[in-house]
């Protein structure tokens, strides 16, 4: 201990210098926007780089799981393909044909890999390895083959970070597949259970059964409609409340999430501009 003090005393000029310079750097980062941006871009690039490196290694351990997931998705797509070839044979059904080919492409998917993901906090975020260079913009929805994952919040050149569905500030417009009743999915940050979210605003008159499927509604420009969110796990009528207390077990296992798709809605700007041009307080 005495040696430590004598060491500190011997180099006291240098330590004073270091303290004052650290103070100056703190003042600079606190007060200058441009320098702060430069500092954080360097820091986040560095952190993203490290995260990706560690992820490259841990990827190998989850290959088996990823393989089986992909095989499952393949199987699902193949069934869809089979159903599709059957429809023209059914002469009783009528179906629309898109003559305008540009209309047919409404959404574009960008595959990405999760490089950082948290599930134990009350406000969870994830980070993917695609950024503005790959056409990612803020506000795009993110899904995995099993269902809704979240929404992109900030974008850098090669990385983007998004707000996870497991974030109590992220509400997703949802509907019950059976009854087409629209509602809102919100994760309960206090519960901290990454497998269960709450379905809000379903009134007591509705007949909700355990096991009902919850999917995204078409009331938003972020996700396409009918993307899986989860299944109803429990329904509790609360006599003091107008709404039912419904818990939904999420279809996505956020703990093992590895590969996701970012959804680009080609008509998002148009959709949003319509609602922007229709203000809430409109005086005739």
């Amino acid at each position: 201990m005495g040696q430590l003090f004598s060491f500190l005393y011997k180099y006291r000029a240098f330590f004073t210098f270091l303290t004052l310079e650290v103070l100056c750097i703190w003042i600079i980062v606190r007060n200058n926007n441009y320098q702060r941006a430069a500092y954080f871009s360097v820091a986040s690039g560095f952190v993203g780089n490290i995260n990706e490196r560690t992820n490259n290694i841990s990827d190998y351990f989850s290959l088996k799981k990823v393989n089986s997931d992909l095989a499952e998705e393949n199987a699902r797509l193949r069934t869809l393909l089979l159903q599709l070839t059957e429809t023209p044979l059914d002469s009783l059904k009528t179906f629309d044909i898109d003559t305008d080919t540009t209309d047919a492409v409404h959404y574009r998917l960008i595959a990405a890999e999760i490089v950082d993901n948290s599930i134990r906090l009350s406000h969870n975020f994830f980070k993917i390895n695609k950024g503005s260079n790959d056409g990612i913009k803020t506000g795009m929805g993110v899904i995995s083959q099993k269902g809704v994952v979240g929404k992109i919040r900030t974008v850098s050149k090669n990385y983007s970070s998004g707000i996870s569905l497991l974030n109590s500030r992220n509400q997703v417009s949802a509907k019950l597949k059976n009854s087409n009743r629209t509602a809102t999915i919100q994760w309960d940050g206090d519960g901290r259970n990454p497998r269960v979210a709450k379905l809000l605003y379903i009134t007591r008159e509705d007949n909700v059964q355990v096991g009902d499927t919850v999917v995204t509604s078409s009331f938003n420009a972020v996700y396409p409609k009918d993307i899986m969110i989860g299944t109803v796990a429990s329904v509790k009528p609360d006599p003091n409340q107008r709404d039912l207390e419904i818990e939904v077990s999420l279809s996505v296992d956020f703990g093992t999430l590895a590969y996701v798709y970012v959804i680009e809605n080609i008509y998002k700007e148009e959709e949003d501009s319509v609602s922007l041009n229709n203000p809430v307080d409109f005086n005739e």
Binding site: A13, T16, L20, L23, I25, I28, N31
Partner: peptide, 28 residues
């Protein structure tokens, strides 16, 4: 002495920074 010179430098730098709108840079 080291310490007093550096503190005088810090104060002078901060005063100049206030007028240059570059808080901390001249002080550094």
């Amino acid at each position: 002495g080291f310490a007093s010179a550096m503190i005088i430098g810090l104060i002078a730098g901060l005063i100049v920074d206030l007028f240059y709108n570059t808080l901390g840079i001249h002080a550094f």
